[in-house]
Write a protein that binds this DNA or RNA. Structure first.
Length: 521
RNA sequence: GGCCCGUUAGUCUAUCGGUUAGGACGCCAGGUUUUCAUCCUGGAAAGAGGAGUUCGAUUCUCCUACGGGCUACCA
């Protein structure tokens, strides 16, 4: 039995499937990034592969303190922990690109030596001038390419000696890839099929910056190769630069072991146009981040799904369905079920608009499926935080009574506040419509009857009220709404007799008295 | 502007040439409920447009339109 399990585990670990999630620590991760991580995670888990976290911090100017930590905590919360990479270690580290500087330099040099890249010494001003000039000539998107490179300062145009002199005296330089003049570059995307680009449309992208850091393009190709990544699953925004990456694999001599590409459709804004952005969050009244985010430098804050009351399981369930579906009519999936059902070939091509209403529904379904005890366990800490110290048994009963009418845990405290404290306000309409001296007398009598009641449960309360209604020739609608408002302040809620039972005799009587005193006619 | 990707109801989607175009969220109506919610039943709601290919196109091809992405010494 144990041997069998071990054998099975070894079998799984030996899978060659290796995927990575490679965010850059420029701020909080939004749900588009979480979904990319999710698909990578599901693909690895489904195939017994390895899910790696790599931090792409090659742009030091955009580095945001706390972002890396935020990313890791977010993945942790969502249940998408990596088994290799930053914070976990592994055989292919370091996993932070800023710590791999020398590796990239070596491969940049290899590309220069093989004639596939060259030094360029142009200053930002010179580049601007070039672009301005070309724009004036009617070229809307000026490129540094086979044509224009001939008029710039680089090792292709400068005499060999001058290049050497510039390098020796420490002039600033970048390294650019030398795009072939006219060549078709094509690759097969797992989601989109064959995609083809013409190399004359691509420009001589900078692959190594003057600060000694590689750009994304070089770094991701080098790292994916060195880390033996088998599948690159990333957002569609990378599709246009993929031919560049394909060429880099080729020029570096890695074409036969090149990973497979899968470019994910984007998550679009629920309103208007464009892809979902980090700024869309609180502007639209719902979170776009997994966790609350506070920027330590500029004090910016943004709200997260966790703090909004989402559970991790429905959160990833909802995200998984933004761009993928299993082809069955099942919509509610546990994480394990997602792993079992996940299949890259069933990922859609077109972008998905994020819908917060649907997200709420997923959370509600999950919440309703939890047992009262489990739910109470989740709710207890939140209650304590809000200053309530009700016993677990009581909270469990609240969950039983109230869970059908909430979306989030927080709703128990907000919309169900009357379970934990006297109502602070009462529904004014009901007072205006139903409250008068005669009804007041009736409730005073009812109060007295309740006081004499030896048994306090929903059934007994109901019998008393029914008797009262018959005796006074009233209707349920004359009494019950008022009774409910006395106890809850609001007109909505679980069956009122059960609420009264749960509140207990003392509390119920007290709330009735308070109300009557407050509204003496 | 150029290049690339996409296009089934308001939204997420099923359909791998022949279906009354299915499901879900949301919406509306009815039932259940003292109320609200849940739940149940029902309803409105979709193949962007135009050419082809085919006995037959939502499905394949092309064009147009629309949407999106990219177009930095950012990722």
């Amino acid at each position: 039995m144990f041997n069998f399990a071990k054998l099975f585990k070894n079998l799984i670990m030996s899978s060659n499937i290796r995927v990575r999630f490679a965010p850059s620590p420029t701020g909080p991760l939004h749900i588009g990034g979480v979904r990319t991580a999710l698909y990578n995670y599901l693909f690895a888990a489904k195939n017994g592969g390895t899910f790696i976290l790599r931090i792409e911090d090659t742009d030091q100017s955009r580095y945001v303190p706390g972002a890396e930590n935020y990313i890791i905590r977010s993945l942790e919360w969502a249940g998408l922990m990596h088994t290799e990479g930053v914070g976990q270690g592994g055989d292919f580290g370091p996993y932070r690109q800023s710590e791999r500087k020398e590796i990239y330099r070596q491969y940049a040099m290899q590309l220069i030596d093989s004639g596939h890249a060259y030094y360029a010494f142009d200053t930002p001003e010179e580049l601007n001038d070039m672009r301005e000039r070309m724009r004036k000539q009617g070229l809307p998107s000026p490129q540094y390419n086979a044509i224009s490179r001939q008029y710039m300062k680089n090792s292709e145009t400068l005499p060999r000696e001058e290049t050497q002199i510039r390098l020796d005296r420490g002039d600033k330089f970048v390294i650019r890839i030398k795009m072939p003049r006219k060549e078709e570059v094509k690759f097969e995307d797992m989601i989109r099929g064959w995609v083809a680009f013409q190399s004359d449309q691509l420009d001589d992208k900078v692959i190594f910056k003057s600060d000694g850091m590689p750009t994304y393009h070089l770094a991701n190709v080098v790292d994916d190769h060195l880390m033996k990544i088998s599948h690159v699953i990333r957002g569609e925004e990378w599709l246009p630069s993929t031919p560049l990456h394909v060429l880099l694999y080729r020029y570096l001599g890695w074409e036969t072991e090149r990973p497979q590409f899968a470019h994910l459709p984007l998550i679009l804004r629920p309103d208007g146009n464009g892809k979902l952005s980090k700024r869309d969050g609180d502007r639209l009244g719902f979170p776009v981040f997994p966790l609350d985010w506070k920027n330590e430098e500029n004090g910016d804050t943004a709200s997260g799904f966790r703090e909004r009351g989402f559970f991790p399981e429905p959160f990833i369930n909802m995200l998984a369905f933004l761009g993928w579906n299993p082809g069955t009519e099942q919509e509610i999936f546990s994480k394990q079920e997602l792993i079992n059902a996940f299949d890259i070939s069933r990922i859609n091509k077109s972008g998905a608009r994020f819908d917060f209403e649907k997200a709420k529904w997923y959370n509600q379904q999950y919440l309703k499926s939890l047992s009262d005890t489990t739910l109470a366990g989740e709710l207890l800490p939140l209650l304590k935080q809000a200053g309530f110290n009700h016993p677990a048994g009581y909270v469990k009963e609240v969950c039983r009574l109230f869970k059908e009418r909430v979306y989030f845990l927080n709703d128990f405290i907000q919309e169900g506040s009357y379970f934990f404290q006297q109502p602070a306000v009462y529904d004014k309409k009901i007072i205006r419509k139903k409250w008068n001296t005669s009804i007041q007398t009736i409730f005073s009598d009812l109060l007295a009857t309740f006081k004499s009641l030896s048994q306090w449960d929903a059934g007994s309360i109901e019998i008393v009220i029914k008797a009262l209604i018959n005796q006074k020739n009233l209707k349920f609608g004359d009494i019950l709404p008022v009774f409910r408002v006395m106890l809850c302040g609001t007109l909505a809620g679980p069956p009122i007799f059960e609420v009264a039972e749960l509140l207990g005799k003392t509390e119920t009587l007290q709330r009735m008295e308070t109300f009557i005193k407050l509204n003496e006619a």
